[in-house]
Simulated scan of single mutants.
Amino acid sequence: MVKRHIAPLLALFTGLTSVGSAQALDSTIPATLLDGHRQTMGCWLADIDNDELLDKALIIDLGVHKLYGFVCSTGLSGDSYRFYQVEDERPKWAKLLSFPKLDTKLGWFASTQLQKPVWDPKNKYLRSEVPKQGEASSCRQFSLYGWKKGHFHIIQVGLSGDCEDNTGEGDMIIFPFVEEVEKGQAAGKATAPEG
């Protein structure tokens, strides 16, 4: 007789928990964004459930613009994220952001993923770090992005840690080329060496 009463109560409790979770999700992160992120190509989400996605989500409120960052893949070197930009609280028109990146051997390219992103709300900077010599090394390349006029632009790229190219103390700046900027010669074009 007791078993007969427990089943309906358990079903009622389970129903309330599901509704409560859906309401919490709707108030902070639109469900359509989470569903859309799961459907995008290029992310490894098989081992990541929605609870982990929500737990690790990064929400950046920039007034009219709100950015939602979700884990795209996990690894020993940290999580990579994809960011979606929502304007005027209209998640159905969210756009996937891409970021300029600099590879010290291959040059410039664009990517929709940032490795280990960290948001600085005071300066409105988004920092990303990529290991350069395996997971055990502290050699890493960082990129710093600034928010201006509705999008991110690249501010700085550098090497930190024990990178072979970094012989000085502290971070070594790769971009912008500091000497060219100080001399007013940073035209955005590479010049061929003479000789």
Rank of each mutant, 00 (worst) to 15 (best):
S138L: 11
C139T: 03
H151I: 03
T191F: 14
I154R: 03
F175T: 06
Q156V: 07
F99V: 01
T104C: 07
L106K: 08
T191M: 15
T17H: 15
G161W: 00
Y81F: 15
D47P: 10
L159K: 04
P176N: 07
P117R: 01
G63C: 05
K105V: 08
I173Y: 07
K95G: 11
L25W: 00
L97I: 02
Y68L: 02
Q23S: 08
L25H: 01
T28Y: 14
A31P: 10
E182F: 15
L126F: 02
K95L: 12
T28E: 10
A186V: 14
K3E: 13
R140I: 01
N166C: 05
S98D: 04
F177H: 15
G170C: 06
V64K: 13
C43A: 06
L54N: 04
V118D: 06
P100I: 02
K148W: 10
D165C: 09
L34W: 01
A46S: 14
H5V: 05
A192W: 12
R82P: 00
K124D: 03
E52T: 11
L16T: 10
G150F: 03
E179D: 15
S80T: 15
W147Y: 12
S80V: 08
L144H: 12
N166Y: 07
K3T: 12
Q185L: 15
L106D: 11
G146W: 06
V64G: 02
F13N: 08
I174R: 03
L96D: 00
Q156R: 09
F177Y: 14
A57C: 09
A187F: 14
Q113D: 09
W93V: 10
K95H: 11
G184Y: 11
F177D: 15
F177C: 14
S98G: 05
D26S: 14
E129I: 06
H37M: 03
E179H: 15
R38E: 02
D51Q: 14
Y68H: 00
E87Q: 13
T28V: 10
Y81Q: 04
I174C: 06
I29Q: 01
L76W: 08
Q23L: 08
